[in-house]
Design a protein around this nucleic acid. Structure first.
Length: 204
DNA sequence: TCAAGGATTACCT
DNA sequence: GGTAATCCTTGAA
């Protein structure tokens, strides 16, 4: 929380965002975790070393970025749910629009497809969800398995700057995991920076 | 092989 | 506040 997510793509401006919302998924016992069925092709990186990106597709249309945590052999990860845009705002907007365009079906007839209506004007809504964040930072499953502790893959995480605003942590239940059942639907493993304008509309 | 459903979002009422 | 969109992964057959 408060750390900086950095994205470097050749020919594009650098993107930097301050992490203000995350969720933790811890072990095979956690019925909300992708590791709940044990090791599979999809979740394999969760069983590897910490500091690695785990990127997966949700609902057939959005990618989500996680950071693997814990020791080798123990599956755990932190889902990055929202960032405050700091650097590369226009590139983030472009990422959102590009994602929306890619989602459109080819127009087979005369019907006009509406242009993507992406609310890119409001900075607090540019990357305020896991799918939006991945689109804004041009992150996809190609980044699954990259080392987030070094810069060679063009995607990494840095500590907060010394003069960054301190994080005010608020913990709540995780979002969208009703299938997990009690007690997993209630454990407060979602963390929010309560002082961030990005999380001001956060549920609960 | 098959059917079910999802760590979300945008758009509608 | 409700729900469609959309593709993969998963467990079961």
């Amino acid at each position: 929380m408060g750390a900086r997510l950095v994205r470097e793509i050749p020919g594009e401006p650098t993107r930097i965002g301050r992490i203000v919302e995350v969720e933790a998924y811890i072990g095979e016992d956690d019925r909300a975790s992708h590791a709940r069925f044990g090791r599979t092709d999809r979740n394999a990186v969760m069983y590897g070393p910490p500091g690695i990106a785990y990127v997966y597709l949700v609902y057939g249309m959005y990618d989500c970025l996680n950071v693997v945590t814990e020791a080798v052999g123990f599956p755990a990860a932190v889902l990055i749910r929202a960032v405050e845009p700091i650097v590369g705002i226009d590139a983030m907007r472009r990422g959102r629009v590009d994602h929306a365009l890619a989602r459109r079906r080819p127009d087979g007839g005369t019907a006009t497809q509406p242009s993507p209506r992406i609310a890119t004007a409001d900075l607090t809504r540019l990357a305020d969800g896991p799918g939006k964040l991945a689109a804004a930072f041009a992150i996809g499953r190609e980044q699954n398995g990259v080392d987030l502790c070094e810069s060679s893959a063009g995607l990494w995480i840095e500590p907060a700057a010394d003069d960054d605003r301190p994080v005010v942590v608020r913990a709540t239940p995780r979002i969208g995991i009703g299938y997990a059942g009690a007690p997993w639907t209630d454990v407060p493993w979602r963390l929010i920076d309560a002082a961030s304008p990005v999380t001001a509309r956060a549920r609960r």
